[in-house]
Computed example of a mutant assay.
Amino acid sequence: MTDVAKIRGKVVVITGGARGIGLATATALQALGAEIAIGDIDETTVKESGVARDFAYYGKLDVTDPRSFESFLDEVERTVGPIDVLINNAGIMPTGKLVDEPDQITRRILDINVYGVILGSKLGIARMLPRKRGHVINIASLAGETHIPGLATYNASKHAVLGFTDTLREEYRRSGVEFSSVLPTLTNTELGSGVSGPKLLRSAEPEEIADAIVALIATPKSKVRVTAMAGFLSQVVNLLPESVADGLARALGSGDAFLGAVDAEKRKAYEDRARSA
């Protein structure tokens, strides 16, 4: 059971907080007494979500723009208070074969999923170190521990997030600032629309990811994988010989899950939004 006292009163910033995992996490933390600030590139939706739930702060945030990120955090600290937890959640997942991926989309994935996380972490650390307390939580993916056809650049971005966060954890050891990665399996949000997960494994609900993040804030650790079964299988598969692991993944359907098996019509709205500049 989560120690509510460890959540109550904390100022928590969540990027990509207008919908999906970000919004579910904001809602769960607010219910436990945290002061929530959400930022999102979608100005209309972040306002709708912020007003509907009466979050302490909400506003437009472009995680790829240092001025936007810095001013957003400044305003949070001015109006709400010193930031205790920064959750770098913003990310996109366009699907398809690499040869068909326009350079603009490749750069967009890396800008948001990698640079946005690095920038946010840097700005968060700079505020937390003088206070000798704080927690940076970076949303990665189980895709960061494996390789899935149709997600080459996305996989690369999440591998980067894991390596980056692990390095920060050691670089700032004993600083008072905690660093964690969250590794969700395919989740029932718009990002996962039109995609079926591997056979035998169910998709997670955003509330499950939110619950894992809540527990992580109460009791920090380096990584949490959701669901537990998907995380266990990911770790086991990485211990197998390459040919066996790849064969098992293909047998479970991962070879086609983000390519031919995608329901393009169901996924169109998300792909259009993710790919828009």
Rank of each mutant, 00 (worst) to 15 (best):
103 D>W: 09
154 Y>P: 03
137 I>Y: 04
226 V>Y: 15
122 K>M: 08
196 S>E: 13
4 V>E: 12
79 T>M: 00
74 D>Q: 11
235 Q>F: 05
169 R>C: 02
150 G>R: 03
4 V>L: 10
123 L>K: 13
208 E>I: 00
112 I>S: 01
196 S>R: 15
266 K>W: 00
29 L>F: 02
15 T>N: 05
107 R>I: 02
212 A>D: 11
277 A>N: 05
227 T>D: 13
109 I>E: 11
192 G>K: 04
154 Y>A: 07
13 V>T: 14
250 R>E: 15
126 A>T: 12
138 N>M: 05
60 K>Y: 05
101 E>F: 04
18 A>P: 12
122 K>G: 02
231 G>W: 09
111 D>S: 04
1 M>T: 15
221 K>R: 15
244 V>K: 10
146 T>L: 12
146 T>E: 02
220 P>T: 07
131 R>H: 12
240 L>A: 03
41 I>S: 08
210 A>S: 08
31 A>W: 00
10 K>F: 05
171 E>Y: 07
229 M>S: 13
194 G>M: 06
106 T>I: 13
150 G>Y: 14
141 S>V: 05
196 S>M: 07
82 P>A: 11
25 T>A: 02
220 P>I: 09
221 K>Y: 09
42 D>H: 12
49 S>T: 13
182 V>M: 13
178 E>G: 00
123 L>A: 11
167 T>Q: 01
200 L>H: 11
189 T>E: 12
7 I>M: 03
44 T>F: 07
43 E>P: 07
219 T>A: 14
172 Y>K: 07
243 S>P: 00
59 G>M: 07
95 T>M: 10
232 F>T: 14
33 G>P: 07
178 E>V: 00
193 S>F: 04
210 A>E: 05
10 K>I: 03
11 V>C: 14
256 D>C: 00
130 P>S: 06
46 V>L: 05
27 T>K: 05
226 V>N: 13
161 V>Q: 06
107 R>W: 03
152 A>I: 04
121 S>I: 04
236 V>P: 02
63 V>N: 14
261 A>S: 14
128 M>S: 11
66 P>E: 14
239 L>Q: 08
58 Y>F: 15
241 P>H: 04
274 A>L: 08
225 R>D: 08
206 P>N: 00
97 K>E: 15
102 P>R: 07
238 N>A: 09
94 P>A: 12
155 N>G: 01
275 R>E: 12
91 G>K: 03
203 S>L: 08
105 I>R: 09
262 V>A: 08
214 V>P: 05
180 S>Y: 06
43 E>C: 04
72 F>T: 06
